[in-house]
Computed example of a mutant assay.
Amino acid sequence: MFFTGIKRYFGQDSLDWFHRSYFLDWFFVGLLWFLSYLASFWPVFERDFSLEDSLISHPHKQSQIGSALNFGIALYIPLLFLSIVGIKKRSFVSIHHGTLALLAGRGLARLITEYLKHRVGRLRPDFLARCKWDEVAKHCAGNKSAIEDGRKSFPSGHSSTAFAGMVFLTLWIAGQTTVLCPSVTPSVKWLPTRMGTFILTLLPLFWAVHVAVTRVEDYRHHKEDVIVGSLIGILSATVCYLLFWPSPFTSSGTTEPRDLYGTRPQLRRTYELTEVDDDNAINTV
């Protein structure tokens, strides 16, 4: 019923590109998320600390941007854009490849981030406020979960999440508008100027940068944590985007995703052996 509905709206050939190998692609993307989920339960390395360390003596503040909000924006905003454009173009392959690339980049960034958080165990800038050191008992007397979370400063999960989602969206917009191809006219009819289209392409990055800055302002992370977290998100999104979509910097000007397994009808190449006329062959010898 699901596939019938797709063919009814997108066309009878809308699934001709689909290859069984895509099931494996989805399996491995799911595996990335599952492993990142397991990594979030690993024990955190308990690093020694000094009560005189000024780097971890900042006050504990409420986060300006919560984890759920950051997660939702980095996931659902890109999904909304690629779904709207895919439906308008009646291109189910664009929706499929966009979703797969987005989830792959997000899952890879989350796995790397969670692994490093638990293995490094760097203390947050507000760790001592969470710790509430007891001079008599000689140990932290604060909330146990808050103390454990205070040992997960490196790298910044908010930054890696935001950049993984927003860098993907930036690359996708650049690919759809061809604004980064110097030899191709940008394909946004309602915004005909190249500079205007370029600013539109960069808008998602402003949100990601804003998220990263707030993590330092809220004393949740050191600047190195934010920088590394951002790089993890950028690299994860870029690599996974390029697996499923052509580079937005190429001069081809295509806005279609990659034909990974040579199954899309318009991209197939067939070769046939032609018969050779025996008489002509003899005469040419």
Rank of each mutant, 00 (worst) to 15 (best):
Val29Ile: 11
Gly30Ser: 02
Gly30Ile: 05
Leu32Ile: 02
Leu32Arg: 00
Phe34Lys: 03
Phe34Leu: 06
Phe34Met: 10
Leu35Ala: 12
Leu35Met: 04
Ser36Trp: 00
Ser36Val: 08
Ser36Lys: 00
Ser36His: 01
Ser36Asp: 08
Ala39His: 02
Ala39Glu: 05
Ser40His: 09
Ser40Met: 07
Phe41Lys: 12
Trp42Phe: 09
Trp42His: 08
Trp42Asn: 03
Pro43Gly: 08
Val44Cys: 05
Val44Met: 07
Val44His: 04
Glu46Trp: 04
Arg47Cys: 01
Arg47Lys: 13
Ser50Trp: 10
Ser50Leu: 08
Ser50Thr: 08
Leu51Arg: 12
Leu51Gln: 09
Glu52Asn: 14
Asp53Gly: 06
Asp53Phe: 13
Ser54Thr: 15
Ser54Val: 13
Leu55Glu: 15
Leu55Ile: 12
Leu55Phe: 15
Leu55Pro: 07
Ile56Arg: 01
Ser57Tyr: 08
Ser57Met: 12
His58Ala: 12
His60Cys: 11
His60Phe: 15
His60Lys: 14
Lys61Cys: 07
Lys61Leu: 10
Gln62Phe: 09
Gln62Thr: 11
Gln62His: 11
Ser63Thr: 11
Ser63Cys: 05
Gln64Cys: 07
Gln64Arg: 15
Gln64Trp: 11
Gln64Thr: 13
Ile65His: 06
Gly66Tyr: 13
Ser67Ile: 12
Ser67Gln: 10
Ala68Val: 04
Leu69Gln: 14
Leu69Lys: 12
Leu69Ser: 14
Leu69Tyr: 13
Asn70Gln: 08
Phe71Trp: 13
Phe71Gln: 09
Phe71Gly: 00
Gly72Cys: 11
Gly72Ser: 14
Gly72Trp: 11
Ile73Gly: 09
Ile73Cys: 12
Ile73Phe: 02
Ala74Pro: 05
Ala74Ser: 15
Leu75Trp: 07
Leu75Lys: 04
Leu75Val: 15
Leu75Phe: 14
Tyr76Arg: 05
Pro78Cys: 01
Pro78Arg: 06
Leu79Thr: 09
Leu80Lys: 05
Leu80Gln: 06
Leu80Trp: 09
Leu80Ala: 14
Phe81Tyr: 15
Phe81His: 11
Phe81Cys: 04
Leu82Arg: 02
Leu82Ile: 15
Ser83Arg: 05
Ser83Gly: 07
Ser83Cys: 13
Gly86Cys: 03
Ile87Gly: 01
Ile87Arg: 02
Lys88Asp: 10
Lys88Phe: 05
Lys88His: 11
Lys88Tyr: 07
Lys89Thr: 03
Lys89Glu: 15
Lys89Met: 12
Lys89Leu: 14
Arg90Thr: 10
Arg90Phe: 07
Ser91Gln: 10
Phe92Met: 09
Phe92His: 06
Phe92Asn: 04
Val93Asn: 10
Val93Trp: 10
Ser94Asn: 13
Ile95Asp: 00
Ile95His: 05
His96Val: 02
His96Trp: 15
His97Tyr: 06
His97Gln: 11
His97Gly: 09
Thr99Cys: 12
Thr99Ala: 03
Leu100Met: 13
Leu100Trp: 01
Leu100Cys: 06
Leu103Lys: 03
Ala104Pro: 02
Ala104Tyr: 00
Ala104Thr: 00
Ala104Asn: 04
Ala104Gln: 03
Gly105Trp: 06
Gly105Gln: 11
Gly105Lys: 03
Arg106Asn: 06
Gly107Ala: 01
Gly107Trp: 03
Leu108Asn: 00
Leu108Thr: 04
Ala109Asp: 06
Arg110Asp: 14
Arg110Glu: 13
Leu111Ile: 00
Leu111Ala: 02
Leu111Met: 05
Ile112Cys: 03
Ile112Thr: 14
Ile112Trp: 00
Ile112Val: 13
Ile112Pro: 02
